[in-house]
């Protein structure tokens, strides 16, 4: 499902990139420089990538070099990083911001992120059940909302497992 969305998104986004290339007088960097930081860890710093796929609040995006500058808020979901030298990396991020700058640098600031292969899906399933229960049984409105957000994250984790 997610794969399909990005596959559809890719050619479209490539067009967008090409268009911005023509209208914007930015110097062609030709490559995408990626900074991926967490508050307590910097995962990637000035790493060259060929493509980065991520899911934002406005939909899934595939980012190539010379992408149109964008400020995007991340949804809980997988960030896929493709580079020519390394094998593709898949990292699950809970939320944050991705900013694509005119000089083809992509800054991803997430609150928490883990490699997909490190995730224990059984634990996620249990936590999701617990969160589901709390969305209705929690005493205050605020706690119910917090449980809903939690559930959203767990569901996104489980969605990555089913692929």
């Amino acid at each position: 499902m997610y794969r399909y969305a990005t596959r559809v998104a890719r050619p479209i986004l490539r067009n967008v990139a090409a268009r911005s290339y023509a209208t914007d007088a930015t110097p062609a960097a030709g490559k995408l420089l990626l900074n991926f930081a967490l508050p307590h860890e910097s995962i990637l710093k000035n790493v060259e990538a060929t493509q980065v796929n991520l899911s934002s609040t406005e939909g899934d995006m595939g980012i190539l070099a010379d992408h149109v500058p964008t400020v995007a808020q991340l949804k809980p979901g997988v960030i896929e990083i493709f580079s020519s030298s390394d094998k593709p990396r898949k990292v699950f991020a809970s939320g944050g911001f991705a900013i694509i700058n005119p000089d083809s640098t992509l800054n991803i600031n997430a609150v928490e992120a883990f490699p997909v292969e490190d995730i224990d899906f059984d634990a996620a399933r249990r936590a999701a059940d617990d969160a589901t229960r709390r969305t209705t049984s929690a005493p205050t409105e605020q706690e119910r909302l917090a449980a809903k957000i939690e559930l959203e994250v767990y569901e996104a984790i489980l969605a990555t497992a089913s692929k």
């Binding site: 900074n35 930081a37 508050p39 910097s42 911001f97 640098t105 800054n107 991803i108 600031n109």
Partner: peptide, 8 residues
């Protein structure tokens, strides 16, 4: 690193 990339 985080702060610099957030305020870039």
């Amino acid at each position: 690193v985080y702060g610099n990339s957030a305020t870039a």
